[in-house]
């Protein structure tokens, strides 16, 4: 999609507008968009300085005139000490910063980021994503950032577009898509989710769903008529209990406990043979161990309902 905007590929049909101006057919070099490539694609035969100054250079501006601008951008990205180095001497992070600096120098207000952090170590990715957002905000740019990393997307986006097989599934703020996704795929793809197939039994204030003999309630209204439904709940919204279990409470046995740093992830096999993933803060973790029988509270507010997909559940949520 962003290749269409940049003009690297032309759409078969439809129009693309930038600043209310139609740009179909305009060659790449006249579109004036900043583009950061997944491959980073720094010119290997040029220094950092030459890479960054390439934009003004090819437009025929004297390097001398653009000198201050280049210097300013290098400083802004913290690259001033590396200006004379060649790309292969840089770390992954510095390379990525150079690529951003190179894209920014044209003064374009539209920045297209194609998996800009994809080639970096996880930890570096974490640091740089916030720097990227800050830069965009400080310079008042519009940015389209393409990524397959949903946490990266959520943490820096104003608006998030979930895409699948060339189609937009859903658009919304990260919070909306996380808390109240309109589509099953979004619910599954954005953050972790437990999925249960069941049957809607009653539609009052609370919708009552039967999952293989166990009951769940949702406080959300359902706008579909089908009886067969998929109930979705995020692992971090489920509360775990010990001791006496009241009737109707989901119960099960902890089969696996995984330490994830700030949270602990449990896998609980319920009495009706479902696997439930649960994430709890570490402070609660010591109370529960593998083999323990536990009760689970699945808050109706956190339970989302979707019609059972025509193509089958596995296909509907398939990531490949």
């Amino acid at each position: 999609m962003i290749k269409c905007i940049a003009g690297i590929i032309e759409p078969d049909e439809g129009e693309i507008y930038v600043d209310d101006r139609i740009i179909n057919g305009l060659p790449i070099e006249d579109r004036e968009v900043g583009y950061v490539f997944q491959e980073i694609a720094l010119f290997p035969h040029m220094t950092v300085y030459d890479n960054v100054s390439y934009g003004p250079f090819v437009k025929g501006r004297k390097i001398i005139e653009a000198k201050d601008l280049i210097k300013e951008i290098l400083n802004m990205m913290g690259l001033q000490d590396r200006a004379k180095e060649y790309p292969n001497a840089l770390s992954g992070g510095a390379r990525q910063k150079t690529a951003v600096a190179r894209a920014l120098i044209s003064g374009s207000k539209l920045l297209l980021l194609d998996e800009p952090l994809g080639s970096l170590d996880a930890k570096v990715r974490l640091v740089l994503r916030y720097e990227l957002r800050r830069l965009v905000k400080d310079l008042g740019l519009t940015a389209i950032h393409v990524t397959h990393d949903q946490e990266e997307a959520m943490s820096i986006a104003d608006r998030m577009v979930v895409m699948r097989a060339g189609e937009i599934v859903e658009v919304g703020t990260p919070l909306e898509l996380y808390m109240h996704p309109k589509k099953l795929f979004t619910a599954y793809f954005v953050g972790e989710a437990n999925l249960f197939v069941g049957e809607i039994v009653k539609r009052n204030n609370y919708v009552k769903v039967d999952i293989d003999g166990m009951t769940l309630y949702s406080s959300h209204k359902v706008d579909f008529e089908d009886k067969e439904a998929v109930a979705v709940i995020r692992p971090e919204f489920i509360v775990v209990r010990r001791g006496k279990f009241s009737k109707g409470l989901w119960t099960g046995v902890i089969e696996r406990k995984t330490f994830l740093g700030s949270v602990v992830r449990f896998e609980v096999r319920t009495n009706n043979n479902k696997m439930v993933a649960i994430k709890r803060p570490v402070s609660e973790a010591s109370k529960f161990n593998v083999g323990d029988a536990v009760g689970m509270v699945l808050p109706p507010k956190a339970l989302l309902l979707y019609p059972y997909p025509e193509e089958g559940l596995e296909k509907a949520i398939s990531l490949e």
Partner: peptide
């Protein structure tokens, strides 16, 4: 991609 990168920066083909 190198050539495309150059073109997004304003270089004609």
């Amino acid at each position: 991609v190198y050539e495309v990168a150059a073109r997004t920066l304003g270089a004609n083909p």
